[in-house]
Simulated assay, not measured.
Amino acid sequence: MPEKFDGEVKARIIEVRFALSGKISSVSKYNGDSVKKWDLVASLDRKILQTELDQQLADYEKVRADWDGFTKKHPDPQDDNKYTKAEKQATLNASVKQVELVKIRLDQSNLFAPVDGIIMDDSGIVPGLYVTPASSSIKIIDTSSFYFEFEIDQKDIPEFVESKKCKVNIEGMKEEIEGETLPVFSDGKKFLVRINLPKSEGLMLGMTGSCNF
């Protein structure tokens, strides 16, 4: 087995997109920007949804007033109006659910970063652009997931069934990074070995280097 393997720095790429269709009203993060978990990335225009919520709240107030009036007139749950009461209760419950659904959709008009990372591809979104759940995904590099990956020959697979300690040298970085290999795996074409890199400072996707045993 060789004592040195060349490879490159990789990381998990998180892809996020809006759950709703709508027009972009603001963009807070663009390509290359750093994000913290739950940072706002972009927002959709909320005017239509807010109007819908106001309408649902007005409908709820009407249904609630009808329910309160009915229960005051018929306080006995065992009287002949129990079926009418059940119907009005169901109508009230449905109204509450409609309000909750619109509130959820309002929350979904904001797109947040699910991890600490760096915006890799903002899909060119700008205010005024109409997007759908199937379009304009934003890719974020998860900076907590950097790893070094290298390819091995098939004959060397037995050497990497169990973890091995090694030192990773990244070109352009002065300090070596100590780590341990993860079990070898195949992507269907190559046999690959990964080493998690605990320190992300200074690391960038695609950096090349070598792993020394």
Rank of each mutant, 00 (worst) to 15 (best):
K82E: 05
S123Y: 05
V102K: 08
I14D: 01
G202V: 01
V184H: 06
G179R: 01
E180K: 15
A113C: 05
G209R: 02
G179K: 01
I140R: 01
P77H: 07
E61P: 02
K62M: 11
V184I: 10
P2R: 15
K37P: 01
H74Q: 03
S200H: 12
K37N: 06
K47N: 13
M207F: 03
L203P: 00
F146L: 07
E159T: 13
M207L: 11
Q108V: 03
F70Y: 08
I118Y: 01
S95K: 06
Q89P: 01
F160R: 08
K199P: 02
L106Q: 05
A134K: 14
V102C: 03
N169G: 10
L101N: 13
W38E: 13
G69T: 04
I125P: 00
L192N: 03
Q56N: 12
V16E: 00
I140Y: 00
L111I: 05
S135E: 05
V96Q: 12
V115P: 00
D107A: 15
E149K: 12
G117N: 02
K97S: 13
S163T: 10
K174S: 15
K85F: 09
I152T: 04
I48M: 12
P114I: 05
I14A: 06
D39M: 03
V161E: 10
V115F: 05
V161S: 10
C211A: 15
E87S: 14
S210H: 08
D6W: 11
R194D: 00
D6G: 11
S144Q: 12
P183E: 05
E176Q: 13
D142Q: 08
G209K: 03
L92D: 00
I13F: 04
D6C: 11
P127M: 06
K47H: 12
Y60L: 13
V35Q: 02
E52W: 04
L192F: 04
S144V: 06
T51K: 13
Y30H: 13
E15M: 09
G69Y: 07
L92N: 02
D68Y: 11
V126Y: 14
Q98V: 06
V126E: 10
S123V: 06
S43Q: 14
F213L: 11
K164C: 02
E176A: 14
D79P: 02
K189L: 12
N212T: 15
Y83T: 13
A19S: 13
S25D: 09
K97L: 15
